[in-house]
Design a protein around this nucleic acid. Structure first.
Lengths: 359, 359
DNA sequence: GCCTATGTTTGAATCGATCCAAGGAAATGC
DNA sequence: GCATTTCCTTGGATCGATTCAAACATAGGC
């Protein structure tokens, strides 16, 4: 049986087994890296020495420095690590990113952190060949940090205000939001409420379109612009449309609906900037015996799989998530130093959560 | 604006900016690692040089070699990478692992591969301080590879047949399966069917208990043993209980049920070795207008959150997934060279998918 | 016996940082 | 003015591998 590792002993190095086998370290290295070029007798001797000394194979730490390439891409977000496994949008995106990575043999490192300081350090010290940056929240800071590493990186989701030196893959949020709103106005809705993604730092509550305009992240701004452009077009007074800022979780969405439906004029349609919020909204409405789409219609944004099987199935704006993931990985791995910004089309998918306005 | 990276130019090194700023590399290093010990005037000069030359900060590749610690743990599985985001059990487990990592500031590297050869290389070259090994399939090979790295590692799920030099965290599968079976026998069921996890390499179809006994992975074996021990106890002839091997996806589960319900004696109860299979089974039964639990009861295994909201909610054996994740991370990070094997308790959670036997 | 071709092995250089003992300069004490 | 302390800076050693030109050995050709 191989000797157990002890916490005390210094790990065995290639040089140690080279000495033990009486060969140079160059030869020892070849035994592992290019076994075919070393004479069989020597090869066996080195391998035997390695076995006897409990050598764990060439340490990637050493190899890495020489080789330069890590062969892994980092996926970064300002959320805690568990975001990757909890959030429906993130999961679908990650699944497509991982497929692209599998196809090319690249690994994935999850980079993230609870607090801001930790995040900076984690990005600075991540062992990766490039970053894919999830711009859900705190996007600009994240982009800034990633850029400082001078490694290839792509931002997921276009920031229309960003300068063009940032490679990005995203969708046209204004057009998508417009599609969602138009779907509802065409169904006759005139009284709306909007659930927005986080704008300022961590907090939820009623907000205004001026505040949303200052949102850190452009998807939030653009989606509101898209909604309001369409609503204005049909004569809705957007200054009276309640906007509730959430943190994209159940608690804040429910608080938002408590607030919205406590108002004098109850909306007949809810525009949610993410499917996650929309799904939480459906739960709240069901619990309050408000019929969807009889009393209230709900339209989400993202196109996560859960939306297809919710009760009722969710009308939403579908992003080509798989395509975005594939393009992002490609952009990192085939990085040629050029920056590119790609905008992908979105699609309105009508399901059962939206219907004609009551009244 | 900082100069753009070009694919051609060799990246700037710490030594380059030290030279440019007219200081030693030692001092240059201190500017980034311990700025407080270098004189302000010098610090600014070096920082200015760094900025001017487009230096991306100390390369973690270099630091790593010196420091020795990666500060990341690898999570390995023999499935493709997307398994981490697709599979409900994996997701819950990963969420708890990531929480534990966040708490300690460690990163996560996903290690996996489409094919076996690639997998070996990926494990050998993963830049991690230790491994958590998901033993869903091909477990023993994975454990072998991880062990060869001589890094701390923990297998998730105990393999009762493994030798004791492998640290592992798992649940008592025999007892858990017994609990599931007893629940059904107490409800009066006597006609059963079993859906098993993969036994041999990739393939699905009817199988036998002898075949399952040869399953690569002990959880499969143990769960069947647990089921059959209980069924035998109440006098069921287990040799006549149909066993269908799936690959834990919708297609193979549905094929299994097609097969099982085509038989002469339709079962009144289905024992599924994972919630994922159980949930697919519920879908199949609903589509075939077979009432659950009126006609058929279904009991799963794992305790994933989806089971609580399925139609009907799933009776299952709940594993303490969060606890397992936390312990696994702790075992890696606080590795003191000792091996430990921990078996955690499971719990029967009765929901609406199980009821009294008809007839 | 000399020259070439072929196959192995060697040892120095390199990757990019951090650490540390030692040295130098300025400030303080007496 | 000399000794002591304090504060910065220096440059060599180190982390663990890979790579490559050069040295060496052996065999074969003539």
């Amino acid at each position: 049986m191989a000797p157990l590792i002890s916490a005390k002993t210094r790990p065995v190095r290639l040089a140690d087994i080279a000495k033990a086998a009486g060969v140079s370290h160059g030869t020892a290295s070849n035994v592992f890296a290019r076994p075919e070029i070393v004479r069989e007798e020597v090869r066996e001797r080195v391998k035997a020495a390695a076995e006897a000394m409990g050598y764990g194979g060439p340490d990637p730490k050493g190899r890495l420095l020489r080789a330069g390439k890590v062969n892994a891409i980092g996926v970064a977000t300002a959320e805690p690590l568990s975001y990757f496994f909890d959030d429906p949008f993130a999961r679908v995106m990650m699944a497509s990113i991982s497929q692209a990575c599998d196809a090319t043999g690249a690994g994935i490192s999850l980079v993230s952190a609870a607090n801001n300081e930790q995040l900076a350090w984690n990005i600075q010290s991540a062992l990766v060949d490039g970053f894919i940056v999830f711009c859900v929240d705190g996007g600009s800071r994240l982009v800034e940090l990633a850029r400082e590493r001078k490694l290839p990186f792509v931002a997921l989701d276009l920031d229309s205000d960003d300068d063009d030196a940032v490679a990005a893959i995203g969708v046209d949020n204004i057009a998508g939001a417009g599609l969602a709103a138009r779907h509802l106005t065409e169904l006759g809705h005139r009284r709306f409420a909007v659930l927005t993604l986080p704008c300022a730092d961590a907090g939820f509550g009623p907000t205004t379109s001026e505040q949303v305009e200052m949102a850190l992240y452009s998807a939030t701004r653009d989606r509101l612009r898209g909604y309001f452009a369409e609503l204005s077009r049909v004569g809705v007074d957007v200054s009276r449309v309640p906007i509730y800022e959430t943190v994209n979780d159940e608690e804040s969405v429910w608080a938002g609906l408590d607030h919205i439906f406590a108002g004098a004029e109850m909306p007949t349609a809810i525009l949610a900037m993410s499917d996650r919020m929309a799904l939480h909204a459906l739960d709240w409405l069901r619990q309050h015996d408000i019929s969807v789409p009889g009393d209230v219609s709900v339209v989400g944004f993202d196109g996560v799989p859960e939306g297809a099987v919710s009760k009722p199935p969710l009308t939403t704006i579908v992003q080509p998530i798989a395509e975005m993931g594939r393009l992002a990985v490609k952009a990192i791995l085939e990085n040629d130093g050029s920056f590119s910004r790609q905008s992908l089309p979105v699609q309105l998918v009508v399901r059962a959560s939206s219907g004609p306005s009551p009244a």
